[in-house]
Every structure is written in C-alpha cells, then in structure tokens.
Computed example of a mutant assay.
Amino acid sequence: MSSKSFSNEKGEFKGQSSIFREMISSEHPVYKPAKGRYWLYVALTCPWAHRTLITRALKGLTSVIGCSVVHWHLDDRGWRFVEAGDEKTDKRNWFDVAGGITSIRLNNSTPAAGICNDSHRLLTDGTDEPHYGYKRLSELYFKTKPDYDARFTVPVLWDLKTRTIVNNESSEIIRILNSSAFDEFVGDEPRQVNLLPQFLQPQIEEFNSWVYDNINVGVYKAGFTESAEAYEREVTNLFYYLDKLETLLREKYARLEAEYGENSKDKILAHYYVVGDRLTEADVRLYPTIIRFDVVYHQHFKCNLATIRDGYPSIHTWLRNMYWRHNAFQHTTDFNHIKLGYTRSQPRINPLGITPLGPKPDIIPI
C-alpha cells in the first residue's frame, strides 16, 4: 500500500513477491483443516486482502476462520492494530464477515477532515489482535521468521497451532479457502460454491492473467511511477485493458439479452459475470480493483482518462451487480477505510493528506 520503495531506478512500479506459500489440506503433513485453527489478518483498504475476505464469506467460513482488521493508516513501521485498552469486545466479532468492523455496511464514506491518522476507534478504525496482544502486524512476521527483512503485507493466513504464517499470497489464499478442505465445517449452501469449476478453469486463468498484470497491478504501475514517461505509458496501457474488459462485458450482456429478452433484467443480471454465466474467482479478483477505481484510483493514482461510472457502462453495471447482489461483496467493502487508507498512507503521492469528498455516492444503486 505505501509507495515507499515501490519504484525501481527508472521510476517504474515494482512489487514484492510473497515468501510464505504453504497450503492447507487433509494430506498436508502440518497444515490440516480444522475449525478455529486458522486466522486471517487483513486491511479493509487493501484490494489483495479484500479478495480473501470475499472468498471467506462466499464459502461460509466466517465461523470457521476468524478475522482481525488492521488500522487503515499504514505508517513507516507497517500495519498496526487498534489497542482495546479497557474496552471489551464481543468475541463473536472475530467471526464476522469483516472482523466485526462496525462501519462496514455504510454505502457512503463520511467526511474525513476530523479523523486523525492516530484515531483509535475500536471496531471502526480496526480491531485489536486477540491472541497475543500484538500491536503490529510485523510481530507475526518476526514470530514466523526472526530475520524477515521485507515489507509486512496483508493478507496473512495464520496457524494458531504452530504459531506461524501459512500463506501471505492472496491468490493462493483464496484457492485454499475455495477448496473443499473446510467443507465438513460449513452448511450445504456454501459447500456448493465453487469459484474455480474445472470446466471454466482455462478461461478463468486466461482472464486472470491479463487482468492481474494490466488492471489489478496496472493502477499501481500508474500511481507509483516516479517519471512522466512511465506514468503516461502505464495509464495508457491500463485504459487499453479497461476498454478490452468493457467490450467483453458489453458482448456478454448482449448475448444474455438475446437469450432472456431485453425486458428480463433480473435474469440477465443473475448470469452477468466476467467468465461463464456464474460467479467465479475471476469476479472475486477483479472486483476489489474496480470498486476502488472511482473513489481512489481515478484521482489519487491519476488514472483519470475516465471514471468507471461515466466512461464504462458495462463494467459499471457489472460492478453494481456484484455489490448489490452479493452480501459477500457489499459487507466487505468499507469506503471509509479505502479512501482514508490510500490518501493518508502515501504522502509521496498525496503530501497534504487531504481525503477527497467525492464521488457521491460511492456506489450507485442498480
């Protein structure tokens, strides 16, 4: 999230590779499925963490894998937790869709002028760390690897039994959660959810490949560049692929309209997804970037050739359909954390730390 050390000598964005890459399965010698054994640490401002929260909710794992939320403000020491002090927190909060954050169901962000970066509103700015009383996410990294010397990123999938990080790569965490590993602990309905059906996997993989590099990471390549030449190249490339996505979804809607009739909007939207006619991993991986586009990336990362709501009607329809149709998407989207997290945590991009009021509303009803 922070822009510190994200650019190479040419002023181009350069990300960081995850190093904790274990899986969870009944066949694994150490990390076996169990209810209450694993814990997810996330930031609601972070798109990579967001995809794991969505998957956790879709798969009915909110009562199986607990969740803690770091403070939205990322400083030079990394992510921090909100200390509880003498306050008592209902332990059921840890198994909420988004770790018990009380502001999560607000569809519009609130003015930020009166909110300080060191604000410590428990269950609003973040949660405390319930297992070890840690103040920083970095403590989990050092507990796992005392000589760890890279950035302390979210999400983190943690094993309470061995007290180690299982995985901190979001694309792998969502596949762990989507697998059948935890099926015995959930009901019939979430057990039927499969975000990576075998017959669609080649299409999903192909879609993910160009979306990841050109849209998911594309906004960061545009936003974190430190040269005008690199910025113009990256923002042009980003919008080329947004155009490609718009064409794909426009053609998808036209096909569904021909199949169900132009007056059958509910039927059309029930099948309006980016790959196939069902909700898949491709939607889960795309959504966190697109939901942040108008409220953050358009102005903060200078991705301002167009907004989604005004320039991409098919993507906009898909986005609103995801948000309003699925609680797992809506109830894990906190526009306050998103806007504050970016505009207050990246002083090289936004040195005054002023958080824009708009656009309003953050998400338009469908």
Score class of each variant (00 low, 15 high):
197 P>G: 05
226 E>R: 15
213 D>W: 07
208 N>T: 06
220 Y>L: 05
192 Q>I: 10
200 L>A: 04
193 V>H: 05
185 F>G: 05
220 Y>K: 02
211 V>D: 01
188 D>W: 14
189 E>C: 09
225 T>P: 05
207 F>W: 06
204 I>R: 03
211 V>Y: 04
200 L>E: 02
219 V>S: 01
203 Q>H: 15
189 E>I: 10
198 Q>N: 10
190 P>Q: 09
205 E>Y: 11
219 V>D: 00
215 I>W: 00
193 V>G: 02
194 N>C: 11
219 V>T: 04
208 N>R: 12
206 E>L: 07
215 I>R: 00
226 E>N: 12
219 V>P: 00
194 N>P: 03
218 G>V: 02
210 W>I: 06
209 S>Q: 12
227 S>C: 10
217 V>C: 08
207 F>A: 02
186 V>I: 15
197 P>T: 10
211 V>R: 01
211 V>N: 03
216 N>I: 00
197 P>L: 09
194 N>K: 07
226 E>I: 06
223 G>D: 05
187 G>I: 04
223 G>N: 10
196 L>T: 12
206 E>R: 11
196 L>Y: 14
203 Q>A: 14
223 G>V: 07
186 V>T: 15
224 F>N: 02
222 A>W: 03
220 Y>T: 01
227 S>K: 11
228 A>G: 15
226 E>Y: 03
217 V>P: 00
195 L>I: 05
205 E>A: 14
194 N>F: 04
191 R>H: 05
193 V>I: 14
211 V>Q: 08
188 D>Y: 15
202 P>M: 10
207 F>M: 11
191 R>A: 12
226 E>K: 14
214 N>H: 11
216 N>K: 04
201 Q>F: 10
189 E>L: 11
192 Q>E: 10
205 E>C: 09
216 N>Y: 01
223 G>E: 04
214 N>E: 11
205 E>K: 09
191 R>S: 14
188 D>P: 09
200 L>N: 02
223 G>P: 06
216 N>E: 04
204 I>D: 02
198 Q>R: 14
196 L>C: 12
206 E>C: 08
214 N>I: 05
214 N>T: 07
212 Y>D: 15
